Amino acid sequence: MPSYSVPQIRLAEQRALASGRALMPLAGAAAAAFVTARFPATASILALAGPGNNGGDALEAAALLLRQGFDVHVVLPSGPARLPADAARAWTGWLAAGGQARTHAALPPGPPPDLVIDGLFGIGLNRPLDASWQSLVDAVNAMHTPVLALDVPSGIDADSGAALGRPIRARWTLSFIATSRGLARPGPGRDAAGECHVDTLGVAMPAEPDPQS
């Protein structure tokens, strides 16, 4: 599959946003549809929402799934105050749907969920996971629960595919707009991603993918 650099994906995203397209609700809807195609509405879901727009995508999906009857819990380790504008609106939508969230980097008590949605960092991570984020990722991996990663598994550099710590091990990765080149190369990124899917959200990419991919 064609793959692209983070700057290429960011440029396409910015152009779409500048044209007035609201991408985050589309990404959330795509993630929710991916889940409903694979899990019954009786399933329990844990959505991990990070401090950026990847977290907003997870919150959009969580609100849609909650409204459809899924048992959905959200962990928002950085709290809502740090969210950018679009993600903050997704947070408001999650609350309006009747959702609540844990605002510290720990998993909720009780039995493991049927699915974890990884919306911690996406393509934005470019430095090693710090101790608290690494502890959360390790706890997710220790559950041996299926994980749907949004864009890239947390703990992976989207451009190089290098591991920035011990990454989340996903069963599926759903990339938005385009697949990042770090998932197309042999290495930790591809290994952590599991089965890769892409939803373009209707955003056009260059005819030629990144020449380095």
Rank of each mutant, 00 (worst) to 15 (best):
S135W: 09
P108M: 06
V152Y: 00
G182N: 08
D199S: 09
G124L: 07
A87D: 12
G161H: 13
R190T: 02
L150R: 10
G187C: 11
P108N: 07
I177P: 08
F121G: 13
G194N: 06
N141D: 15
P167Y: 07
L150G: 06
G119Y: 10
V147P: 05
D199M: 02
P108W: 02
P146E: 11
G182M: 08
A162K: 13
F121D: 12
H197E: 01
G187Y: 06
G122N: 12
A139W: 07
A97R: 01
D138C: 12
P111T: 05
A88Q: 14
Q134G: 14
G194F: 00
R89A: 13
S175E: 12
G93E: 02
G93V: 03
D118V: 08
R185G: 07
R171V: 01
R166K: 14
R185H: 15
L136Y: 11
G155M: 14
F176A: 09
A96C: 03
L183F: 05
P188M: 10
N126S: 15
D138V: 09
S160N: 11
T179H: 07
G124W: 03
G187Q: 10
D114S: 08
A106E: 12
N141A: 12
A162I: 08
P188G: 09
S135Q: 15
L125I: 12
P113A: 10
G161I: 11
S132Y: 05
L115M: 02
T103I: 05
Q134Y: 05
P113K: 02
D157G: 04
D157T: 03
P167I: 03
L120R: 11
R185M: 13
L150K: 09
W91V: 00
W91P: 00
G119C: 11
P188I: 02
A184D: 14
W133A: 15
R185P: 12
L148Y: 03
S132R: 15
G110E: 04
R185V: 08
N141L: 12
G99Q: 03
P108E: 05
P153E: 01
A105H: 08
G124Q: 12
R171Y: 04
T200K: 00
A85Y: 00
L150S: 02
G99A: 01
T92N: 08
G182R: 05
R185F: 11
A87K: 10
A88S: 13
S175N: 07
N141V: 07
Q134P: 05
R181Y: 11
P188N: 09
G124N: 13
S154D: 06
V140Y: 12
A139G: 11
R102M: 06
L164F: 02
D130A: 14
L107I: 02
W94R: 00
H197Q: 03
G99I: 04
T179Q: 14
I156M: 13
D191R: 12
W91K: 00
I156L: 09
W91S: 00
A193G: 13
A139D: 14
A101L: 02
G189A: 06
P153I: 02
L183I: 12
D191F: 00
I156P: 07
A158I: 06
R181C: 09
W94H: 01
A106R: 15
P188R: 14
G119P: 12
